[in-house]
C-alpha cells in the first residue's frame, strides 16, 4: 500500500506544480513507483512542467466518470519507467469531481504505486477539498512573504481540521542574499510563525525557469541548487535523515568583489 501526498499552499503561484513535478521525478529516480495526479481541473499545468503535454488522451474526469480506464489515462514518462501522470481535465471545472470520488481514485492508485502525489489548485474551495480528500500527508509550499505565509497558516488550520497527518513545510524561492541583509524572513522565522515541521528549503533558481521551458524537472540537473534541494526532500520523504545545509549565497560578481575587498563577514 502506497502513500498519498498532497502538495498545497493556499496562495497561487508559489510553486506547487514545480514542487510536485520535481519531487515526483526525484522519487522515481530514486527507484520508487510514482503516480502524479494533476488536481487543478480547468487549469492543468503539471503536464507541461513534466514535458508530457503531447501524450494526453484521457484525463482525471474521464476516469472518474467511467468514460476511460485508469490505465488508459495514465501517461508513462519515457525518462523514468516507474513514473506516470494522470492529467487534469482542461475543459471542465472543479465541480466535475467530488471529494469522495477523489478519495476512491487515490485509494485505488495507492494499491499500485509507492507514492501518489497530488498537485492541488490554489484556494480553499472545492478544488482544494478534492485534492486533500485522499491524501495521507500534506506538504505546504510557502514563499518567505507576508501574504504567502498568511495563506499557508490558513491552509494548515484547515488541514488540521480535516485531521490529515501533520503537514510539512516547504519554503520555496528563498534568496540567501536578501535573508543575509535582513530583507527576507529566514528559515527559523517561518518555522516559528507556522509552527510545523520543515521538510525542504528550495532557493530561488533560474534553473527552474529553464527546466520548465524544456519540460525537464530541475531535479534531473545535477548543477542546479533547486534541483539539489528537491533531491534532499525526496530522500527525506523516503525516510532518510538528511541535515539541512546552511543557506549559501549565490556568487554574484558584486559579491565576489566585495569579498575580495574584505568588506564582507
Amino acid at each position: 500500500m502506497g502513500e498519498a501526498i498532497v502538495i498545497t499552499s493556499g496562495k497561487g503561484g508559489v510553486g506547487k506544480t514545480t514542487t510536485t513535478a520535481n519531487i515526483g521525478a526525484g522519487l522515481a529516480q530514486a527507484g520508487s513507483k510514482v503516480a502524479l495526479i494533476d488536481a487543478d481541473i480547468g487549469l492543468r499545468n503539471l503536464d507541461v512542467v513534466m514535458g508530457l503535454e503531447n501524450r494526453i488522451v484521457y484525463d482525471l474526469v474521464d476516469v472518474v466518470e467511467g468514460f476511460a480506464k485508469l490505465r488508459h489515462a495514465l501517461i508513462k514518462d519515457k525518462r523514468f519507467e516507474n513514473l506516470q501522470l494522470l492529467p487534469a481535465a482542461q475543459t471542465r471545472d472543479k465541480t466535475a469531481v467530488s471529494p469522495e470520488q477523489m478519495k476512491d481514485l487515490v485509494e485505488t492508485m495507492k494499491e499500485e504505486f509507492d507514492y501518489v502525489l497530488i498537485d492541488s489548485p490554489a484556494g480553499i474551495e472545492q478544488g482544494f477539498k478534492n485534492a486533500v480528500a485522499g491524501a495521507d500527508k500534506a506538504l505546504v509550499v510557502a514563499t518567505p512573504e507576508v501574504s504567502s505565509v498568511r495563506d499557508a497558516d490558513r491552509i494548515i488550520g484547515l488541514l488540521e481540521a480535516y485531521e490529515k497527518h501533520k503537514p510539512y513545510l516547504i519554503i520555496n524561492r528563498i534568496r540567501p542574499a536578501m535573508v543575509k541583509r535582513g530583507d527576507m524572513m529566514d528559515i527559523d522565522d517561518m518555522i516559528e510563525i507556522l509552527a510545523i515541521e520543515l521538510i525542504g528549503v528550495v532557493p530561488e533558481d533560474e534553473a527552474i525557469v529553464i527546466s520548465t521551458n524544456r519540460g525537464e524537472p530541475a531535479v534531473m540537473n545535477q548543477n542546479s541548487r533547486a534541483g539539489e534541494a528537491y533531491r534532499q526532500i525526496t530522500r527525506r520523504l523516503r525516510g532518510e535523515e538528511v541535515p539541512f545545509p546552511k543557506l549559501e549565497e549565490e556568487s554574484s560578481l558584486f559579491g565576489r568583489i566585495r569579498r575580495m575587498m574584505g568588506l564582507k563577514g
Binding site: V146, R150, D153, V179, D183, M185, D189, I193
Partner: peptide
C-alpha cells in the same frame, strides 16, 4: 529596521486575528 522584522510583526498580528 530590517524589513523582515516588520514583516514578522505584521504577520504576528494578522495571524492572531485570523486564527
Amino acid at each position: 529596521d530590517a524589513s523582515k522584522d516588520v514583516a514578522k510583526e505584521r504577520l504576528r498580528l494578522v495571524l492572531m486575528h485570523d486564527r
